[in-house]
Design a binder for these strands. Structure first.
Lengths: 246, 246
DNA sequence: ATTACTAAGAAGCGAGTAG
DNA sequence: TCTACTCGCTTCTTAGTAA
């Protein structure tokens, strides 16, 4: 970790911002190949800079040992060096960490069965279907949140009108009311794959701090191919002051 | 995909490179918080630019609507906007795709059992232990490679001296020789977590094109918490001309 | 065709300083 | 203290053009 991140810290001074982006653009040209054939004119057009500057950029990257170049006649072939690859990798990793700070991220944890028991109870289930607008899978996905995410989520939930699932009574016992909060859930790696869901706020299942339960129509572990420890992004769809800002 | 990437393409012109990096630096300051308190002087020191330039950068980000800022007396509080967050996210996603072009990436697929049968045969197993230097798990991890990765890997393997596991005969049948290639395997998301492994080149298990079998001491699916479809990075440790370049 | 040098012009930086 | 303005100076960019 440290050595390769130091690499990034050293490399990413203001004078190297163009160089980083040049490498980024070059990498995008890789596609399935390992070597890039590009003229400085083309690179210039791609990066919206002049041919001359593009040429200079390529030279700079060679000097930095981020790429290697072979000139075969008029054509130059470029390969990314280990150093260049590691620079991209460390930026990738930093971005990953940093995105977890920006979004509300939950970590999938064990415990689908207990919550499911309550969901399946007819007195609740019919109300879920009617009031949430979907037929929930008879089990909940448990998510572990970090302290700050939990706090922010609670804060947001206060500003949102919950869907109220009313309590009821049968022969054996009394069932308390349940609050639901509309939410969009998506896997961390494909935020575009969104599923309408609800956060369950069941009084009696405050089993563990920072664990929330999610209700959705599909079995989310299959739908998103989740395993324990995988991360998902939660987005409250009631647009309050806060949600606009993230 | 398209709309948010267009967002990135529009935003990431040369004039915005500093702005992108400014946002990147600001995000790093988030930690567990949702709001950043920083003076322009501090940001300047962090980014190795003057206080004046840092101040200008913050203003630029506000103009771009990548951040929002509230000034409370002398202190300015910064939050990342949806637009800013999506910019970081789309860069993250692009980097992810692009890193798959740079490294040799295999996708975990079903099929651990068949290969394992051969590994466990005593005539082979004892040689594995002796010649590979580890006691392999009695099963193989099957990886699917894309065409280009497979081609590059084959090319690299030609330049490397394989570990030769000799064939033998027992009462019932004859077993052919097996070639192994030393390799380092690591999960895509933590390239630092490396495990010494070997690619098995068994004549008779050329079951499917672009599928390779990996032998390692631990049960890799547990060791790396892999499920089907997960990606791993392979690094041939015999440093030839090619491996130096990636 | 290419890449890349030179020189003029544009853009950006930070010191000084005001609010 | 802060942020952010002006302005001189430096650095970077591009057009022209050589190789």
């Amino acid at each position: 970790m440290s050595e390769k991140n130091n690499n990034e810290i050293e490399s990413l001074t203001p004078e190297n911002y163009h160089n980083w982006f040049t490498l980024y653009h070059l990498c995008q040209l890789l596609g399935n190949r390992r070597t890039i054939e590009i003229t400085s004119k083309e690179l210039g057009r791609l990066m919206k800079i002049s041919q001359q500057t593009a040429s200079r950029r390529i030279n700079d990257l060679v000097d930095l040992n981020w790429i290697k170049r072979k000139k075969i006649g008029k054509i130059q072939k470029i390969v990314i060096t280990e150093k260049g690859a590691n620079l991209m990798l460390s930026t990738y990793k930093n971005l990953r960490k940093l995105l977890e700070s920006i979004f509300i991220v939950g970590e999938v944890t064990e415990g689908m069965k207990e919550g499911g028991y309550y969901v399946a109870i007819k007195g609740y289930y019919d109300q879920f279907v009617e009031k949430l607008g979907f037929k929930p899978y008879k089990g909940t996905l448990n998510l572990k949140l970090n302290d700050m995410d939990k706090e922010i989520l609670s804060e947001k939930m206060k500003t949102i009108n919950p869907v109220v699932i009313e309590g009821f009574k049968d022969q054996s016992r009394e069932y308390g009311p349940v609050l639901c909060y509309d939410v969009i859930i998506s896997p961390f790696h494909d935020r575009k794959d969104e599923v309408k869901a609800a956060i369950l706020d069941i009084e009696r299942t405050h089993h563990e701090k920072n664990i929330i339960e999610i209700l959705a129509e599909p079995y989310l572990r299959d739908r998103f191919k989740l395993k324990n420890g995988d991360k998902v992004i939660l987005t409250l769809n009631n647009p309050g002051e806060l949600s606009k800002n993230y």
